[in-house]
């Protein structure tokens, strides 16, 4: 079974087709890079896949659930993190994780263990009682990721998670992504950093609502006869 399976997924807003019959599959534990220019339709597609927006036509199965009829079950089984920082600044690190864990109905005793484990992985145990507003951006982003996977979702959607983050923390962030994927979590990630596209197992490139290219980074570079994903992107968009 695929973790994500989109079939002719389409969304129209009036006469404008934001997502135009996209079909693709993502395997369990795969890191899938969902690339495209601004306005290509990535965010709309992610909203449909996370059960926030109904498609005009077509469908997608997310962790085995149908986005048209089982959006509640989907929300329970996915994690989501966006470019906009999504934690509460005037709650502490621990309180933020506690809040999200409680919303997902993680039993109280178990929740505390999970939070402490997760803070250990982030090397942030000492910051448990620090207000989120006063920690650096890169740490916030790592914390937001840890919070998004606290309820052990099968799939996590990351929408430009590293935008504006410094080069060292970006790499630490990707280390967390790899760690999660090695535990079987499927990752769908968007980014404008083309070096990060190289870190994905497979990538797709969207343009005008359609998926125009899909494959491993090496396959796409070979196909377009260039040396980097940046060049793939540039060559592709210029055509």
């Amino acid at each position: 079974m695929f973790s994500i399976e989109a079939n002719q997924l389409t969304k129209q807003f009036g006469t404008f087709t934001a997502v135009d019959h996209i079909s693709f599959q993502v395997n369990e534990g795969e890191i899938f890079g969902f690339l495209g220019a601004n306005g290509a339709g990535k965010t709309t597609a992610i909203k449909m896949m996370s059960g926030l927006l109904l498609p005009t036509s077509g469908t997608a199965m997310i962790a085995g659930f149908d986005i048209r009829t089982q959006s509640k079950l989907i929300k329970r089984n996915i994690g989501y993190m966006s470019q906009k920082f999504s934690l509460y600044g005037d709650l502490t690190v621990f309180e933020n994780m506690q809040l999200f864990g409680t919303i997902y109905k993680i039993p109280r005793k178990e929740l505390k263990d999970r939070i402490m484990n997760s803070l250990r992985e982030l090397d942030m145990e000492k910051q448990a009682d620090t207000l989120v507003d006063s920690i650096p951006l890169g740490w916030k982003q790592k914390l937001a990721f840890a919070t998004a996977i606290l309820h052990r979702p099968k799939i996590v959607f990351l929408d430009e998670p590293t935008s504006g983050v410094d080069p060292i923390v970006r790499r630490e962030f990707w280390k967390l992504i790899y760690l999660a994927a090695s535990k079987g979590v499927t990752i769908l990630v968007t980014t404008h950093y083309m070096d990060e596209a190289e870190y994905c197992n497979r990538i797709s490139i969207m343009s005008e609502g359609q998926i125009k290219l899909i494959g491993t980074p090496d396959e796409l570079k070979k196909k377009m006869e260039v040396n980097t994903i940046n060049d793939v992107f540039v060559k592709f968009v210029k055509r």
């Binding site: 601004n38 992107f233 540039v234």
Partner: peptide, 13 residues
């Protein structure tokens, strides 16, 4: 101030 943040590589160029 950050005119190209969140902008795709082609538009950035």
């Amino acid at each position: 101030d950050e005119p190209t943040t969140g902008v795709d590589p082609v538009s950035r160029k």
